[in-house]
């Protein structure tokens, strides 16, 4: 790219203010899909017990970046990552790290609710089972109940835990997916447009949930909705064409964007 120099000069450091607890720190992350580069030198810190929103026009690399954080891109043959991403100071791309282990700590919720074609109970029990976190029926029961409670789905499904998860409404399905992620007690939850397939009421419930979860988890969420970012997040990062353009407190970004592109995007001039 010819103008990469100018953009790199204005590259934000993305560091959280001194003293704030950094959960994930990424430095100079580049990613290629085959020949095509999709991320260019991303430096971004994700603070613990906060919600960080990733915004930007379609195709700018938000999902791609999010998937770097739990090495989901490993499942794509052509994807290649360079750079340094640390979870609690530990390089997650180090040889010694097993992505399986990593993903138990960094959970993920997807754009389209994707419950497994199993019962509600089995959906939630899936993670604890594969990781061997709980072995007795009683332990699993307990995890299922508390996870569903934390995902504020318990009241709605407590009488039909044996019914297939795919039979729930879209919003319920998405909360089931969140419960499924919570069930392995991750430290970080990554959410890729978790509400884009939902109606406003369901969206509202998920947003409430995110705000509750933030107390105990580090959350990164991709969203296309400015207002959602404003409602749920404390920090916002703006991506554009694979570059991290600007990052800061949500209030600052929305009221006083430094970069012209951020401004244009927020005021709805493109994207």
């Amino acid at each position: 790219m010819s103008d990469s120099g100018t953009i790199q000069m204005s590259r934000p450091t993305g560091r959280v203010p001194e003293g704030a607890p950094v959960k994930i720190a990424s430095r100079d992350v580049n990613l290629w899909y085959g020949e095509k580069q999709a991320l260019f030198g991303i430096d971004l810190d994700v603070p613990d017990n906060h919600v960080t929103a990733l915004i930007g026009p379609s195709g700018c690399g938000k999902s791609t970046f999010l998937r770097c954080l739990n090495r989901m891109n490993d499942t794509i043959d052509i994807a290649r990552v360079a750079g340094d991403i640390r979870l609690d100071g530990e390089d997650i791309y180090a040889k010694a790290i097993d992505p399986v282990q990593l993903r138990a700590r960094v959970g993920m919720v997807f754009q389209k609710p994707n419950p497994f074609p199993k019962s509600i109970y089995e959906n939630v029990a899936y993670g604890p089972r594969i990781h061997g976190i709980a072995t007795s029926k009683k332990q699993i029961d307990e995890i299922v109940v508390t996870s569903l409670q934390k995902a504020s789905l318990w009241e709605e499904v407590k009488d039909r835990l044996d019914e297939p998860g795919t039979g729930l409404s879209g919003g319920q399905q998405q909360r089931l997916c969140i419960a499924r992620a919570i069930a392995v007690s991750p430290e970080v939850i990554l959410m890729d447009e978790p509400c884009s397939a939902l109606d406003p009421i369901a969206t509202d419930r998920i947003e409430q949930l995110i705000l509750e979860l933030k107390e105990n988890y580090c959350i990164a969420i991709v969203t296309h909705s400015m207002s959602q970012a404003a409602r749920v997040s404390q920090r916002t990062a703006f991506f554009h064409l694979g570059y991290l353009v600007e990052v800061g407190d949500t209030a600052d970004i929305f009221t006083n964007p430094q970069d012209k592109r951020t401004q244009d995007y927020i005021t709805g001039r493109f994207g």
Binding site: N70, M72, T75, P99, V100, Q101, L102, R103, A104, G107, M108, V109, F110, K112, N114, P115, F116, P117, Y126, G127, I130, H131, C177, R180, A181, V184
Partner: peptide, 11 residues
Amino acid sequence: SLRDGSYGLGA
């Protein structure tokens, strides 16, 4: 999406 869901949980 089902595969992603499972990998995302660390399977």
